[in-house]
């Protein structure tokens, strides 16, 4: 159940593009045609599903405070978490290189279709973002980490596929000249993101977003107001009862 929940949450609620804006650069640059968008999307799914579990292992056994305990008791105090950026990006860059070599050797057809996108992926924010969110959300097991990587990739794939399809069609529409191209793509993405927000209530009523202090204060004041109202109501009812 945990797996199913994480899977759908990562695809729809915490969608990489619509909720956190990761991988926007390639999302905007490569979404002019559906066929190329599919290629890049597939490559992203693949690389995320490989690198997130890899970085999970790295985080668990090297980086987090006390992770080096398996080396011996004297290493238990070490906290290497400040190295996570450099180690994560190194893992990603090497994995991308490795994946490229393996795919070229064993699946030349896939290689020609993914071709130019594979090396580009090393610098796609979605990939590093996947690993960093895995770390900050404290994902518990290797299986869940794989699940998270895969599902985030699928979410990104869906997003780029949808926008590519829309952009192919929008060419026939009469968009105001200054908005053509980039501008309208931004606005459509914004509207799609608003649409995706409605998935927020799908699982547990949505994750609690951090409210700004103002809003929190407002809510508290409202609570106080209602409390005083309740009190005055109680007084009134008491008076009525007395009468």
């Amino acid at each position: 159940m945990e797996h199913v929940e994480l899977f759908f949450k990562s695809i729809f609620i915490d969608n990489m593009v619509f909720a956190t804006f990761l991988g926007m650069c390639s999302y905007l640059a490569v979404s002019k045609k559906v066929s190329t968008a599919v290629g890049l999307g597939a490559a992203v799914i693949f690389v995320l599903a490989v690198t997130v579990p890899m970085n999970w292992l790295l985080d668990q056994y090297v980086l987090r405070p006390g992770a080096l305990k398996w080396l011996g008791a004297e290493y238990a105090d070490y906290d290497l978490s400040f190295l996570s950026f450099i180690l994560f990006i190194a893992t990603i860059a090497t994995m991308v290189q490795l994946v490229e070599i393996v795919v070229e050797k064993f699946a030349p057809a896939l290689y020609t279709s993914l071709g130019i996108f594979l090396p580009l992926i090393a610098v796609n924010c979605a990939i590093l973002g996947g690993s960093l969110f895995m770390q900050s959300r404290d994902i518990q097991t290797l299986g869940l980490a794989f699940n998270y990587g895969l599902a985030s990739g699928i979410g990104w794939f869906l997003a780029i596929l949808a926008i590519a399809a829309i952009r192919e069609k929008i060419r026939y529409s009469n968009v105001p000249a200054p908005l053509r191209g980039l501008g309208i793509t931004f606005i459509i993405t914004g509207l799609m993101a608003i649409g995706f927000m409605s998935f927020g209530g799908m699982l547990t009523g949505g994750e609690e977003k951090t409210e700004t202090t103002d809003e929190v204060a407002k809510v508290e004041v409202q609570k106080q107001d209602t409390a005083t109202e309740d009190e005055s109501l109680a007084e009134v009812s008491q008076e009525i009862n007395n009468k």
Partner: peptide, 26 residues
Amino acid sequence: SPMALIVVGIIIWVQRSRNSALIEEN
């Protein structure tokens, strides 16, 4: 978050309508 996209979209709109050399073909 979606409003950030729309605000940037509007900035692009304003900028490109002031400078027509920046307008894209489609």
